[in-house]
């Protein structure tokens, strides 16, 4: 594990920090089956994905299509039934600080303050400058004023900011995000998406972002992977032509509307198929 404080230039916090680890994610023919026999539920079926270092990829799909399960296999929370996941060429066998995870909600430790939640990762990783590292990320997500607050005292948006800071503080090579803004109200969600891109433009970490919101995926991603359910698998893949830096007013651009249309079409036809399957 590389030492965050050593790579970061603290004298110029406003400048771009030197910290930039960009991992490659290879999902190789991964299937995930829950249960056995008659109860067997194929959550993910024979899926392969290659995510380039520094890429921002969104996995888009309806609820229950196996997005979280696939992401969890990268995090090391579940072991694929077949196939394997490689991060920077290393097979994933268990969770680790090289893969930062941001959950949908309620994942901050309620008994730790904002600051202590962020500092936990660095100190567990043996970062001798854990305090300074935490200080830096606290400042990055704009919560210096709330350093001594407990999670219960923060708004949902603030909690997710802490979640992002916490995940980045171990200097991971990939950032995994499971519908991190899904529980927020629409206005907060938009603000959070913008802040995430701002942070990402500084860090350039590889991001694998799960969402069921088409607009969110178009606004954030370089590449959009569309999944469908029963069994969960990838049904389409789109490169996002929308230029960076992104801004909310881009949603009226022609290329934005086009790619959004493409995503919606796939989702619609897949939903119809699933509907027919259920009523067959």
């Amino acid at each position: 594990m590389q030492n965050v404080a050593q790579v970061m230039d603290f004298n110029s916090i406003e400048e771009q920090p030197a910290l930039k680890k960009r991992g490659r994610i290879q999902i190789d023919n991964v299937s995930l089956v829950f249960g056995t026999g008659k109860q067997a539920n194929i959550a993910v079926q024979e899926t392969s994905l290659d995510i380039e270092p520094g890429e921002f990829v969104c996995i888009l799909g309806p609820s229950g299509c196996g997005k979280s399960t696939l992401l969890n296999s990268v995090a090391g929370y579940v072991t694929p039934t077949t196939g394997e996941v490689l991060v920077d060429g290393e097979p994933v066998v268990e969770p680790g600080p090289d893969r930062g995870m941001v959950f949908q909600q309620y994942s901050l430790l309620p008994w730790k303050t904002t600051f202590d939640n962020i500092a936990l990762g660095p100190s567990l990783c043996g970062d001798v400058e854990a305090t300074r590292t935490a200080e830096y990320f606290l400042d990055m997500v704009g919560l210096t004023k709330y350093r001594n607050h407990y999670p219960a005292e923060l708004s949902g948006g603030m909690q997710q900011r802490v979640g992002i800071a916490r995940a980045l503080a171990t200097n991971p090579s990939v950032l995994l995000m499971d519908e991190p803004f899904g529980a927020l109200d629409a206005q907060t969600r938009l603000v959070m998406q913008e802040s995430l891109l701002e942070v990402w433009s500084e860090f350039g970490t590889t991001v694998l972002f799960v969402t069921h919101d088409v607009d969110e995926s178009v606004f954030l991603a370089d590449r959009i992977i569309v999944m469908s359910a029963s069994p969960g698998k990838v049904v389409a893949e789109f490169d996002n032509p929308l230029p960076r830096p992104r801004s909310p007013d881009m949603s009226t651009r022609k290329d934005y509307i086009e790619i959004k249309q493409k995503c919606l079409e796939v989702i619609r036809s897949e939903s119809l198929r699933a509907f027919e399957l259920q009523n067959a």
Partner: peptide, 25 residues
């Protein structure tokens, strides 16, 4: 269980999980 997963992802060993998650939780 999310507290446990999140803390494992931060690099916690079994003893560290007890100290940081199970005992206070």
């Amino acid at each position: 269980p999310t507290f446990v997963l999140a803390t494992k992802s931060l690099g916690a060993s079994r003893m560290e999980l007890i100290r940081e998650v199970y005992l206070p939780g």
